[in-house]
Each structure stands twice: as structure tokens, then as C-alpha cells.
Amino acid sequence: MSDAILKVRDLKRDYVTKGGLFTPPRVLHAVKGVSFDVERGSTLAVVGESGCGKSTLARMLTMIDAPTSGSIEIDGAPIDISAGKVTREMRQAVQIVFQNPYGSLNPRQKIGAVLEEPLLLNTSTPAAERRDLAMAMLEKVGLKPEHYGRYPHMFSGGQRQRVAIARAIMLKPKLLVLDEPVSALDLSVQAQILNLLADLQDEFNLTYVFISHDLSVVRYIADQVMVMYFGEAVEYGTRDAVFDNPQHDYTKTLFAATPRADVASIKARLAAKSAA
């Protein structure tokens, strides 16, 4: 691990639910001590079912939520939002793309404004330059200049996700957290977005933390894979190691549950059906 841009050590996050008059408060351990490194320009995929803590992890990486204990280091600099000393530059280093492009864009904001807002809030770029940067970014993510003045409802799901990705990379982040970016999209659109992510990674040398529950997508895009189960990282390794030789029972269950779309498994299923 020579050039790790993200170093996470023993990261924990507990949520405390308030107790009532006679019920003691309960502690929910959402993330129970996770450690990993992500190298610059590579992709770490985080896999797991809903409730396993993968989104909590994303919230901590993007400095939305403070960890209960453990450390996060981005590009050599430790971040700790509970101490309230995160600079604007630090926040620019990490951006996030959410799952649902229908919910993550403000319906009353034009696409141009969506893209310019990060610059407006974080930098002192003049308006004309912001506009040029937004135009250039639209083209980068495969949209057209005339889309600048349109509203989110005029776009399809795939186009909206392009806008969300464009917004996330406006500030040239070092690390991009993608929380299930393609699971709400059609298969054909999914392929386009995955290609776009690969193009952008090549161009800007971006580092991705890619959260997903779709193993076929993970296999395609990831360099490293981490499988989470009830807040713990039960499996962590290179893509080939995890896919070829899964160690943990949960990983095996996950592989078994993934639908297979190859001819051999269809034949096997039809044979089993006619035998029954």
C-alpha cells in the first residue's frame, strides 16, 4: 500500500436510541471496527445487504457523520468532524453520489445552478467562469450545453445520475463515494453510467468507494472488494481473491443468491425443473 489516499483504521459508529421511562437506552452498533486502505486511482467496492452499515460508512467518509471511534485519513490528513476542525479544503476532497437521482436533485433548481452551486459555496470563482466550468462539465458527462437551463424533471433517470455525478466532481475531489449509483437504473443505462465512471476515473485519476449490492457490477468495476455483514467487514481483498475464493459464509450466500444469466445455469435450472 504505497499510495493510499484513504486510510481507515478501526472505524466504529454507534447509534443510541433514547430509552423511555422504564426502558433503558439501547445502543446500535452500525459499524463495528472497519479498517481498509484505498489506493489513488483505484476502486474499492463495499458490498452488503441493507442495514449492514455500508451507508453509515459512506456518511462517515464524506464527513456527514462523526465516527464514534477510530480514524479516517484522507491524503495523509486525519479528519475528525466531532472536533469541528474540518477545513473547507478537506470537505472538497470528498464528494458523494446518491442512489436515487430522482431524490438527490432539487426540482426547483436548473441544472446549471445545480452544477455551479458547489463552486459558489466553496470557491471564489467568478460567475462567468463558473458558467464555463459547468458547461465543460456537462459535456464531460455526456450531456449537451442546451441542458444547462433545464430542470431535473425534464431528464431521464440516467441523465439525472449524470448530473449528480457532474455535480460531485465539479470541485475536483480526490475521493468520490458512490452509494448504489446504478441500482435505480435500467440495464442499458447502467452500462452507460458505469462506462462514464470508468472514463472519469481515467481522466481525473479519481478514487472511488463504490457501494453496491449487485455483485455483477462490483465484479466489473472494483479493484478491491470489502463485504460487510452486520457492521463488520467479513471479507476484504482484491477482486479476484474475493470472487474466486470467498472465505466467509455470508459471502458465499451472497454469491449463491446472485441470479446467473449464463446458458449453463439456465440449462441446469430447466433440467432440474423437468426432473421434478
Partner: peptide, 28 residues
């Protein structure tokens, strides 16, 4: 799955990430 007739079906099947052969996925 074995012998898709229509180009659209072929496109759909090749857009599956597990069928990816090259660096990029073919899109529909």
C-alpha cells in the same frame, strides 16, 4: 440466451456486466 435473434436482445445481453469482455461495456 444461447442464440438471441434480435440485435436489441443481443445488445441487452452484452450490456450485462458479467459478460464484459473489454475495458468498457457495450451499451444498447
Amino acid at each position: 440466451f444461447e442464440a438471441p435473434e434480435h440485435p436489441y436482445t443481443r445488445a441487452l445481453l452484452s450490456a450485462l456486466p458479467e459478460n464484459a469482455t473489454g475495458d468498457r461495456l457495450p451499451t444498447v
